[in-house]
Computed example of a mutant assay.
Amino acid sequence: MFIPFHYYDPKTFSEFLEIANQVQNYQILAGGTDLLVKMRGGYAACQNVIDIKKIQDVPEFQKIEKNQDGLVLGSLVTFSELLDYQEGKPFFTALYEASKVMGCHEIRNRATIGGNICNAASGAEAGSVFLIFDAVVHIRGAQGTRSVSLEELYQSKSKAGKPGISLQNHELVTHFFLPSLPEKSHSIYLRRTRSAGMDLSSLNLSFACYQEKNHEYKYRVAAGAIAPIPCRFREIEQMLSSQNGNHSSLEEVQKKIADLSQPRPNSKRASVEYKKDQVSELLMQAVHSVPFFRL
């Protein structure tokens, strides 16, 4: 049951700032697939809801474009809109794989990229994928615009211990930029669920590998639902880069990622032991999926 609240739908960014300054205690409504469920369940009681979908003077909100440098994604772009934009799929395969299994058609038609990222849920589908693509978050507020890496925002969120990413007063995420990987690259998104059909992931892993100009291979590894926030495993990346096909080293990598994982002990979807075991299995599955060289 909903607790009564005030609803606002500003048409311009300045109108949003005016409302935000007046009401102070508010929640942002984008797609609503997380917020409305929490409000109905009494988990996110708030007095004011500001719907930002009708703001017309921030074109970045709805932008989706693949250019020579990477992929630009507006924070109000839905997962269905992303999947319909096929130009980015060959370069950001893991992102499209994650988007395809994000909820059902109805959810993907409503859920926004920005909402999924900003909510910062541990198992958010886009969270670990954005981390392996070194996503940059573009933010606009009363003091102007700024940009920051998603990894930095997630780390700040973890330290604050509060839900959602940490933004300053009355700021909105306008869009994201995902730099392209080098030409010879590979990315994959993997997950474990409780059923073969539509289900939230018990854990997920995003993986990328690419070859540098000196022919050395570099790796990026991130995972969700195995820590309080989606997290990047830079120590694992370094271990993979230095293992040079040594299978005994791969066993050490498996053990290390399990040790680094910190699943919630009260998770309803899977036990700590299961998640630690399966994140190492997903990593090996990802490593052996790389098509252009043998480990």
Rank of each mutant, 00 (worst) to 15 (best):
Q22D: 13
Q62N: 15
D57S: 08
I257K: 05
S248F: 04
E15A: 11
L172T: 04
G114V: 04
T145F: 05
I64Q: 09
G88A: 14
F91P: 12
E125N: 12
L240K: 08
Y96H: 07
R108V: 13
K66L: 15
K268P: 03
T174P: 06
N204F: 05
C46A: 09
L150Y: 12
N169D: 13
G123I: 02
V221T: 01
R269E: 10
E216W: 02
Y8V: 03
G41P: 05
N25L: 03
K100Q: 15
S185D: 06
N48E: 09
I226E: 02
Q211L: 06
P179T: 03
K276L: 00
R146F: 02
N169Y: 09
L150H: 10
H186S: 05
Q27R: 14
Q254E: 13
Q86P: 06
F92R: 09
G197H: 13
Q285G: 03
I165L: 07
H138K: 13
I52W: 04
G88P: 12
I55G: 12
A121E: 13
L167N: 12
A124H: 05
A225G: 02
K184M: 10
G42H: 03
R294M: 11
L83D: 11
L181Y: 00
K255S: 09
L181Q: 01
H215L: 13
T145C: 13
C209T: 04
I226R: 04
L203W: 06
Q262M: 03
K54I: 00
N214T: 11
N244H: 14
S185V: 03
G31L: 05
H288T: 15
L167E: 12
G164E: 04
A286E: 05
K276A: 02
H288E: 14
N25R: 07
S185H: 09
Y154W: 07
K162E: 11
F79T: 08
V279A: 01
S180N: 07
A286G: 01
F16C: 06
S80T: 15
S267H: 00
S149L: 06
M239K: 11
V23W: 09
L36A: 06
Y154D: 03
P4G: 02
G41H: 11
E171L: 01
D9V: 07
H105C: 12
Y85T: 01
S249A: 15
Q243S: 15
N21E: 10
A44N: 07
A98D: 07
S206G: 12
D199P: 04
V287F: 10
R192C: 13
E252S: 04
L181V: 02
S158Y: 04
E60P: 06
A222K: 00
K89T: 08
V37I: 10
Y96M: 05
K66R: 14
F293L: 14
S201A: 15
V173W: 06
S195N: 14
H170D: 11
Q211C: 07
V49I: 14
A196T: 05
N48P: 06
E106Q: 15
P291N: 08
